[in-house]
Design a protein around this nucleic acid. Sequence first.
DNA 1: AAATGATATGCGATGAATAGAATATGCTGT
DNA 2: ACAGCATATTCTATTCATCGCATATCATTT
Lengths: 118, 118
Amino acid sequence: MDAISIYKCLCDRQRLRILNLLRSGPLCVCLLMEILEADQVKMSKQLRYMKGLGMVEGERRAQWMVYRLTDAENPLLVENLKCLQDVAGERRVFRDDLKRLERIRKHSAAPPRTCEKP
Amino acid sequence: MDAISIYKCLCDRQRLRILNLLRSGPLCVCLLMEILEADQVKMSKQLRYMKGLGMVEGERRAQWMVYRLTDAENPLLVENLKCLQDVAGERRVFRDDLKRLERIRKHSAAPPRTCEKP
DNA sequence: AAATGATATGCGATGAATAGAATATGCTGT
DNA sequence: ACAGCATATTCTATTCATCGCATATCATTT
């Protein structure tokens, strides 16, 4: 995972949002899709992309795939992930994403699209 | 200077090398070209690009243009510039660039292509 | 003011990243 | 074995960045 690949990955808004969300714990694809209002294909591709870099890893839970950040060793990545929360120009979006995640988690205690954190 | 623009800028090898070199002080275009073995047009465009982002600024010195890092306030940028030296996969190149800069500075005390640091 | 060296800009061509539709795979419940 | 949802993959179309060439600008020297 060299620097340039990391930067290439980080220069996409949606990927940043995904990483930001994953920082709060593993999440399934459907939840990510819902929060980011993204279509299935795109989300899947983004995750594949980041998986290819070794930034995230996926684990199957029944019919769902749950993604998490890998225990990244790379200091450059670690540093930048830390910065995410108070990143200029995106702070608002990131915070809202997290709020939405909270809301969804509490609200849909039972039914559809619920992916309880493993 | 938002996060994504910064990352977009940093995900180019040549731009990283330029930034790395500029960290050691202002440099003229011809020196940058020489060290990075880059052609004039490309170098000029890269500098313009980074100038557009407010990362570098240029000042005319007679027929030369001397570029320097701006006093970047942006914490994300500052952080990443700091990391540059020991960035995975590029360490070697960066170090060699700096060495070459040293060598050129010492060697060509007088004539051509010398741009003394203002 | 013409010639020369340093740097910048504009534009068409090329290539890389992203988007979108169609389809495939994998798991679950019946 | 089939139906239905969740996720992944493939292929083409489009968009965006980069490249190369030609040319422009600006300062210096003659």
